[in-house]
Design a protein around this nucleic acid. Structure first.
Lengths: 246, 246
DNA sequence: ATGGACCGTTGATCCACGTCAACCACGAAA
DNA sequence: TTTCGTGGTTGACGTGGATCAACGGTCCAT
């Protein structure tokens, strides 16, 4: 009976060094001894049910979050009710970085499915990253990567057509699922057509039509949220038309 | 004769504590004693002539830059020649943060006029921000602010119409000029219509037409790159239509 | 199993913005 | 001065994606 106790304790322990997401998450690139020192960083885990907010725009900023399980969207709401989805986040990715600048969150983070996050008190992160060099560098890289990613989205929104946008989105999802050990060619989207549309600057009808068109052309097989990519090369070709400018 | 020497030396000295941009730049919010310690941070200044690159996509990342005088645009070039301007930067703002993540720059930074930047070796910044707490916090805030700004642009590109975008752009410029001690209502744009269009996800003709429309409506007076804002409230009203949704 | 809410698909029509083209204003160089 | 090149404006026209509308599928809760 008692033999089960240590196992239970171990599985409940919150520790980066025990986590199978190290290679995707904040500890990526850090030495083992450095990662050991992170174990004090994650104060607690927090479960968020589907459709619930992890935080809302305006909430005071105290912590950033690493996704331990599940997935999220972040969005900003305009005064007139328009919504702009600014990103989709998967396991190992960080949430809440936007809050540092004003010490209040500037967007909403909403779980797309029942999820769990590691809560990283920002004050503790600052403190620890002063002594653990690898943590300092990795944290900066995580923020910088977010900036680069946002520039990619701006490019997509500013200069690509609807089908290019969706192709880029699918390839991005495929790549991220692959990095997490899932199939590059077959995956389940957790977000609705409307959320995809908002992210891509399109209406849901346009997203739906583009999905259908890709299916007609044999590029993918769609069944609701389940996607199978049949022709990766074809999708990539959509984004980079072969003949540049005359 | 020799009396002029110390003055010359002082004016050449590269020092945040002597700089009149402290309130806009990295040292913002830091104590005087902390700022004094920054003086070793800025290794050198660098002058960039109009249309020249400060760095290019792919360049190895070694430093970030604080704009001391002048202004820049950052852009990414797609393989087929399309350009997406990802931002315009003014004095006191930082350039190069995108390079941390991959240790190579991911966009181009091009001077819109003859400009000068302070070169901040990234290794030195890391080192110093481990001991100067205020620097660590401020640097994180600068990165976070960039993320928030990018989300704003994504919102603009993803869910606003042409005239809303241009109004938002003008109000943003006005606010930034104001913060630098210039008139909120009258300023000189350093970028072309095409660059504005690229930034806003519009063609230059659309930008031009929107300028003309605003002028016809008495919101602004345009003379080439010289802008006078005549009705700020009217511009703001354009972004937030008074009647939300029925 | 049944009703209902939500989500997705598809068609018909519309319009905001892109495209194409002509022309004009300004500054630099000759 | 004239010329040239770049940048800006404006008009006519075309189109990609939005809008409006109807319907079908799926997943719940009862």
């Amino acid at each position: 009976m008692k033999a089960t106790v240590p196992i239970t304790v171990a599985s409940l322990k919150v520790a980066c060094s025990q986590c199978n997401l190290v290679e995707l998450c904040l500890p990526f690139g850090m030495s083992e001894s450095e990662i050991d020192r992170l174990d004090e960083l994650v104060g607690a885990r927090r479960k968020i049910k589907r459709q619930q907010h992890l935080y809302r725009a305006g909430d005071p900023f105290e912590a950033i979050y690493a996704i331990r399980a599940g997935s999220f969207k972040t969005d900003v709401l305009l005064e007139d009710g328009r919504e702009q989805v600014t990103g989709f986040q998967m396991t190992g990715e960080m949430l809440g970085l936007d809050g540092i600048s004003t010490e209040a969150h500037s967007c909403n983070a909403i779980a797309l499915e029942d999820s769990e996050v590691c809560v990283i008190a920002y004050s503790k992160l600052e403190e620890l990253s002063r002594v653990v060099e690898g943590l300092q560098l990795q944290f900066h890289k995580v923020m910088s990567r977010e900036i680069v990613r946002d520039h990619g989205v701006m490019t997509l929104l500013g200069s690509m057509r609807a089908e290019e946008r969706l192709a880029a989105f699918l390839l991005n999802m495929s790549q991220r699922f692959t990095a997490r050990g899932f199939s590059p060619a077959e995956f389940h989207l957790r977000m609705t057509r409307e959320e995809i549309g908002s992210y891509l600057g399109l209406k849901l009808e346009t997203v739906s039509r583009a999905f259908s068109k890709f299916q007609d052309e044999g590029l993918i097989a769609v069944q609701q949220k389940h996607i199978r990519i049949l022709d990766i090369v074809g999708l990539k070709r959509l984004i980079q038309p072969p003949s540049p400018r005359p």
